[in-house]
Amino acid sequence: MEKTKEVLYNEDLHFEHKQWQSELAFWEDELKSFNNRLAELVHRWTKKEVLAKLEHYQNEFILHDGIIDKLQEEIEIHETRIAGQTKTGHNALDTAMTKKHLEFRNKMETQRQIYADLKKEFFHFLSKYM
């Protein structure tokens, strides 16, 4: 039985990158909104435990914003490599670049889950203290 190989074409990867960039931009906008909510709560609450939770979420949002920046940078680097390959007439990725792309896809899936969990936790917190 012959083993088939999946070929990843540059335009397919570019499409996936655009999807990821849109998702990351959406997360950035959401984080701005979440930080605005934190600012509102700082003025409403003086209890130390609530303020500690607010600080926790502020730190989480700063951390996540940094991760978004790193992911966006990685996408740009990969896009540059794809563009270079396309200029040389190669329409499909080599093995090393394919591996990097698949690893990045896994990073995005992991980060998507981490971010979803953070949002869920934050919304629960908001429903309690807003």
Rank of each mutant, 00 (worst) to 15 (best):
G84D: 10
E6Q: 05
F123T: 11
T4W: 14
G84C: 05
M108K: 15
T95C: 10
L31T: 05
Q58C: 02
I68C: 08
R81Y: 14
D12R: 08
A83N: 13
D94S: 03
V50I: 09
E23C: 12
Q113T: 06
S22P: 01
G66R: 03
G84T: 05
E28W: 11
S127E: 13
L54M: 05
N106H: 06
I62H: 07
K120C: 12
L93T: 08
M130I: 07
I82F: 08
L54Y: 09
L8K: 02
Y129C: 00
I68S: 07
F26W: 11
K5Y: 06
D65E: 11
L24S: 03
S127N: 10
Y115F: 14
H64N: 05
Q58F: 09
Y57Q: 01
A83T: 13
T80K: 12
M97I: 13
T95Y: 15
N91V: 10
K70S: 14
L24K: 02
E28G: 11
I114D: 07
D69F: 12
F61N: 00
F34A: 05
L31W: 08
Y115M: 07
V50G: 00
K70A: 11
T110G: 04
I68F: 12
L38D: 01
F104M: 11
L51K: 04
K128I: 09
E6W: 05
F61C: 00
M1V: 12
Y57D: 00
M130K: 05
E28M: 09
N59S: 11
D65L: 07
M108L: 15
F125E: 03
D69C: 07
K18E: 08
L13A: 11
L126N: 04
H90F: 15
K53I: 01
Q113W: 09
S22K: 08
D12L: 09
A96D: 08
L126W: 08
D12H: 13
E30A: 04
E30T: 02
F122V: 00
T95A: 15
R112I: 02
Y57V: 01
H14A: 09
E49D: 12
Q85V: 04
N10Q: 06
D117F: 04
H14S: 13
D12T: 06
Y9C: 05
A25K: 08
H78F: 14
